[in-house]
Amino acid sequence: MAGKRTIRRVLIANRGEIAVRIARTLREMGVAAIGVASDPDLSALHALVCDQVVPLGGTTPLETYLDQEKVLAAAKETGADAIHPGYGFLAENASFAKAVEEAGLVWIGPPPESIALMGDKLAAREAVARAGVPVIPGSPALSDPARARAEAEKIGYPVMLKASAGGGGKGMRVVRTPEELEPSLEAARRESGKAFGDDTIYLEKFIERPRHIEFQVLADK
């Protein structure tokens, strides 16, 4: 097929259980698995099961698995055809996905545009609403406490303050009464700004005892 690229070597930009699973799957497919490792992880299981391992030279995630330049350099150095990010670390980093593609490598993951869209909760809400998907009642970005109070009254308590750029529970607060709203908003903003470099906060209706249903979507080019 015209334009189809054969992938023979994949760099796994991750560690731990997910990197081990990817490496074993690649081996079953007859594809070489290239690992990367921080100094403490050089003897970890994911480093042992890969066909080749590139030391990233550092001890912290920021110095190693989150260092885009080091990971890309490792891929180029080892002749990798593609990069699989696993989950966490750089997996949801749109700029890294774009850099991988610009380097002429295959990015095994969603397009950078989709990562950027889904990484912003407010933008993601707007996108799925335009597609006709029901969303929890919520607000736009909250500019000040007065706007927050008005939006909370419109939605109805209890509400959840959420960081638009957030994840992992950071920048989130459950607010059950109007008196709790302003101090919770300030706390959520501080936490979000510190964790993500973005203190944009919005409101959603808080759902008691929700049932979580998740859909995994797979696609190929």
Results as ranks from 00 to 15, higher is better:
I34H: 04
M29P: 03
H212G: 06
R149C: 06
I18H: 05
K194W: 07
K98G: 01
L122T: 09
R173Y: 00
A80W: 02
E214Q: 00
V54T: 13
A75F: 12
A44F: 07
R9L: 04
A131M: 15
L72Y: 09
N93C: 09
L185G: 00
G79Y: 02
G132T: 13
Q216W: 02
P61Q: 13
L161N: 08
I83Q: 08
W107A: 09
P145A: 12
D81A: 01
A163T: 00
S164G: 13
G168M: 01
E204G: 08
K221C: 13
E28R: 15
L117I: 11
G166T: 01
E28N: 10
G193F: 02
A163P: 05
H212N: 02
A116I: 08
M29F: 12
K76N: 06
G88M: 04
E186N: 13
I155C: 12
D39E: 11
E77D: 12
P85V: 02
G156W: 11
R147G: 06
L11S: 05
A23Q: 01
R21G: 07
P61E: 12
G30C: 10
V217M: 01
S139K: 10
V106G: 00
R130W: 04
I18C: 03
S38A: 15
C50D: 04
G156S: 09
A148F: 04
F206S: 14
A99S: 14
K70Q: 07
R130A: 15
A13C: 01
A74D: 07
M160S: 03
A152I: 06
A33W: 02
D220W: 14
K221Y: 13
E180T: 03
T177V: 11
M172Y: 02
A74Q: 14
G166R: 06
E191G: 03
R9N: 02
G104T: 04
L181H: 01
I155L: 14
E113W: 04
L203E: 02
K170F: 01
L117K: 13
R173M: 00
E69R: 15
P111K: 14
T25S: 15
V100R: 11
E63N: 07
K221G: 15
K221E: 11
Y202I: 04
E179M: 03
L218Q: 10
E102V: 12
E208H: 14
W107D: 02
H46D: 03
E186I: 09
V20N: 08
A44G: 06
M118S: 08
V175S: 00
A150L: 12
I18T: 04
P145W: 11
D67I: 03
K98W: 01
P145F: 09
G86N: 04
F215N: 02
K70S: 05
E126Y: 01
L142Q: 08
E153H: 12
P183Q: 07
G79S: 07
R8C: 08
V175R: 00
Y87A: 01
A99W: 11
G79V: 01
P137W: 10
P110I: 10
A19R: 05
Q216A: 05
S184R: 00
E113S: 15
R149W: 04
P85S: 05
K70P: 04
E180R: 05
F215L: 15
T59F: 06
R5S: 02
G86H: 03
K4E: 14
P210N: 08
G86R: 03
P55S: 13
A33L: 06
S184C: 01
A103H: 09
A123T: 11
G3A: 12
